[in-house]
Amino acid sequence: MFQVNEVVQLNDTLCRVLLTSMRHIVWIAVEDKKAFPEIVELSQLEVLLLQEKLVRVEDPYGYIQNLLPEKGSKEARIRDTNYQIIKPLVEDPNFYIKKNRSQHIVEILAAGKVSRPYLYRLIRRYWQRGQTPNSLLPDYKNSGAKGQKRIAKDKKLGRPRVIMEGKGALVDEKAEHLFRIIIDTYVLNKSFSLAKAHRKLKGAL
């Protein structure tokens, strides 16, 4: 009846199913920063389903499955390093039993690679976001001033070149305005090829 990793809503609480058996499931509250896996009897959930107090909902972290960070990139290294740290715990089929979980936590902390608060954040993120290594990818989309336009000042925005020589161009408001004119006038209406539009832009700069 229930599938591993599906998300359900009970009242205002989202819960992810982590494990299923013939008589119970193990789930975790998706948005609770202090949550741990809990065992729930299937008979209880069946009643809640019939009463429409428990409903299936879209996975808020479903997109994580399709993320493909570049091999060797910073985010990929962070993901892989963190997964290796929590792997003994999250791959234990009895992870939901407090005694087993506590033993793994003691052993991981003894290695001295992470603090207890950070370890708890990692394992919660793993369970709450879909039980996949990608769950441990950094939330770079939440960095910086969300929704605000970045303005180039002394140096260009973005990553520096690693293949071609040079430092790249600083795109100020004037250059950006010219880009927009060329794109709107010649590219979007397909009156110019990209190569011809590029030459037009170079002549205008």
Rank of each mutant, 00 (worst) to 15 (best):
V90T: 05
G62L: 07
I86D: 04
D59P: 15
E91Q: 12
F95K: 11
Q128M: 02
F95Q: 07
K74V: 06
E52K: 15
I97C: 08
R79T: 03
Q84P: 09
K87R: 11
Y96K: 09
K113R: 12
V55E: 07
H104Y: 02
R101M: 11
I85P: 01
K98L: 15
V90A: 04
L54A: 05
I85L: 01
P93G: 06
V90F: 01
R116P: 06
E58G: 13
Y118Q: 01
I123V: 14
K71R: 13
V57Q: 05
G62F: 02
E107H: 11
V90I: 08
S115R: 02
Y126D: 10
T81R: 12
P93L: 07
V57R: 06
N94P: 01
W127G: 07
L119C: 04
A76Q: 13
Y63S: 09
D80C: 00
I123K: 10
S73A: 06
Q84N: 09
G72A: 09
E75N: 11
R101E: 05
T81S: 15
K71W: 13
I105F: 11
N100D: 11
P60A: 02
K99S: 15
L89Y: 04
K74C: 04
N66D: 12
A76C: 08
N100P: 00
K74N: 05
L109C: 07
K53V: 13
W127V: 14
L50D: 11
Y96E: 08
K99M: 14
K71H: 14
L54Y: 03
K98Q: 15
I64P: 09
A76T: 08
L89Q: 07
N82E: 05
A110T: 02
Q51V: 10
A76Y: 10
R77Q: 10
I85G: 01
P60R: 08
S73E: 01
Q84T: 06
L119V: 01
K98E: 14
R121M: 10
K113M: 05
L68Q: 15
L68K: 15
Q84V: 06
K74R: 13
I64D: 00
D92M: 07
R101S: 13
L67S: 05
P60C: 01
K53N: 12
G72Q: 03
